Simulated assay, not measured.
Amino acid sequence: PVQLILVCRFERMFWKYRGHAKAYRALTLDAGHVSQAIYSAATAQGLGAFVTAAINEAEAERALGLQPMAEGVLAVCGVGWRAAERVTAELDPLGQVWPVTR
């Protein structure tokens, strides 16, 4: 199992978009695209994946040595082996990973 912390450089993005109101939106869209690529790669390998923004940003930024207000954590992604038995809800709409039993 592995966890990936998605980090951004706010200064660079705001410089790139020259203070445009949608600079932050572009950051979050990029994080979404990266997390979706991680999901796709994990699924192709038969692994489980997750993404969450429910994190303690201050603690993560301190642990990574990020510069406050210049760099920041947007989300955490994880990839790992699936359990042998499903005990919590998981997205599998086609029933390919967890066979539907009736």
Rank of each mutant, 00 (worst) to 15 (best):
L91E: 01
W98S: 07
A41H: 02
P68H: 07
P68V: 08
E57R: 15
G95E: 00
V76K: 05
G32V: 00
L47M: 09
A44F: 02
A58G: 12
W15V: 09
G46R: 09
C77S: 13
M69R: 15
A41V: 07
R82L: 15
G65E: 05
V73I: 10
D30L: 13
G80T: 06
Q45V: 00
V100M: 08
L4N: 05
C77P: 07
Q67A: 15
F14T: 05
A26E: 12
A23D: 03
E90I: 10
P93V: 07
R82T: 07
L91W: 07
L74D: 10
A75S: 13
A21V: 13
A49I: 05
A44Q: 09
E59Y: 03
A21H: 09
T52V: 05
Q45G: 02
V51T: 09
L29R: 15
L27P: 04
V87P: 00
T28C: 15
M13I: 14
G65Q: 06
A41W: 00
A42W: 01
Q36G: 05
G80M: 08
Q36V: 01
A31Q: 03
V7F: 08
Y17A: 06
M13R: 15
M13E: 00
G48H: 01
P68M: 11
L91H: 04
M69I: 03
A42K: 02
Q67C: 13
A75E: 10
R82M: 11
Q45S: 11
E85V: 12
F50Q: 11
E85P: 04
A26L: 04
R18W: 01
F10R: 14
G78W: 00
A23L: 02
G80L: 10
W15M: 11
A89N: 11
G46L: 13
F10L: 14
N56S: 09
V34E: 03
A21N: 10
T43P: 00
V7C: 06
L6V: 14
A42E: 01
L47S: 01
P1D: 09
G80Y: 04
A83E: 12
P68K: 10
E90C: 14
A89F: 11
R102F: 06
A31E: 03
V79D: 00
L91A: 08
P99L: 06
S35N: 06
A23R: 01
T52F: 06
R9Q: 14
S35Y: 01
W15S: 11
Q96Y: 01
R12H: 10
F10H: 15
A89P: 02
Q3S: 15
A83P: 13
V97Q: 11
A31C: 07
A26V: 08
G32E: 06
V97D: 03
Y24T: 13
Q45W: 02
D92E: 04
L4G: 04
R62M: 08
T88K: 12
C77I: 11
V73N: 02
I38V: 14
P93Y: 10
E61A: 13
A42T: 00
